[in-house]
Computed example of a mutant assay.
Amino acid sequence: MHNARRLTRAFAILAAVSMAGCDDAPPETVERIRAIKPYYIIEPAGGDVRQYSGTIAASNTSALSFAASGTVRNVDVNQGDRVVEGQVLATLDTEPFDLDVEAAQSQVSAAEAEFDNQKVELDRQRQLHERGWVARARLDQAVAAFEAAKSQLDLSRTRLGIAERDLAQARLTAPFDGVISTRNVEPFTEISQGQTVFQVDSDDVFEVDLSIPDSVVGRLSIGAPVSVGVPTVPGCGCAGRITEIGASAGAANAVPVTATILEGPDGLLPGMAAQASVVLSNDDGPRGFLVPLVAIVASDENAEGYVFKFDATDGVVRKTPVQGDGSVSGNLIGVTVGVEAGDIIAAAGVSFLRDGQRVTLMGE
């Protein structure tokens, strides 16, 4: 009898716990953001490979000069030195600039005093004129004197601002991280305003400047792959892609084209001679791009196949219909409709993706 009571009490407790659990709200479902392996659309489906001579250039370069003339007091860097943004490269003798600031401050003080005097005089002449004690001509003279004092004050303040700016710009600083590629200045020499004293080149990304005949430039596209070789740098077959195509032809009917080197080896320097192998799309037939076979989703009644294109703005993939040209190169297939140079598509696991699904790119 005693054991029966214990069992009854245990079942009652279990029932109460179960009922309490039924009242709890179901846990919120957290959307899993899948990381996708990206494939960048850059390689044309078919085409001719041509070689062109070019020159290695820094992706960012700047010729530096002082904004004012003066005597160089210090030069703190040498050619080949690495610098960081804001680092002081050279300094002018600041004594003349300090004197200019002091003189300009004195002119401002004198102009302010004259302005105050003329303002008081104008107020006095206006009151006298209202009482009829002075002629209108006398008031006009006071107004003219006040306006002249005001203009002189504005001018002196402007001169002070220029003097202070020249003093601040007596120090020349690096505009970005890079390398001093050229130094054309020595201490204790006179330099002129605007005279180039340094050239700073960025050292993180390099480009190749090419001149492509206008007869074939229409067969290039932004993002097209480029193989860059530099004879004096071992191991540079460097991979790159076209990032700029000029809009007009220059000398010898050549159009300027720029290709960015994606991963350059150590030893690349601006000005080096380079050979670039460029892929030109075929003139005959539709133009397309190579896409991995594993990136293609099976066809249905609406399209030959689909890819999941990454939408960087919304951070999602869009299921996009594609059409091929039937060409196959290894594990890549030619696609003529649905993708463009620069697109990013999912290169694996497409069977687990859906239209509009939030994703991130592997490695980011």
Rank of each mutant, 00 (worst) to 15 (best):
N253C: 00
R219Q: 15
P225H: 09
A247N: 12
P231D: 14
G246S: 09
V226C: 06
V230I: 09
R219A: 11
G240N: 03
S227E: 13
I242D: 02
V230T: 05
G237R: 15
S221N: 09
G237D: 12
V228E: 02
A254L: 10
A251K: 12
S248Y: 14
V233K: 07
C238F: 00
S248K: 09
A252K: 15
A249C: 10
P234K: 11
V233W: 02
R219L: 13
A239P: 00
A239H: 07
V233L: 07
A249E: 06
G218M: 00
V226A: 09
P234D: 13
G240C: 06
V217H: 09
V230E: 02
I245M: 05
G250W: 12
C238L: 02
G229H: 09
R219V: 02
A252C: 04
G229E: 15
A252T: 09
V230N: 03
C236Y: 09
G229T: 13
A239R: 14
C236R: 03
G223Y: 07
A254I: 09
C238D: 05
T243D: 08
T243M: 07
V233R: 05
L220I: 06
I242K: 04
V233T: 08
G237I: 00
A251Q: 15
G218V: 00
P234W: 02
P234T: 11
A254K: 11
A247Y: 08
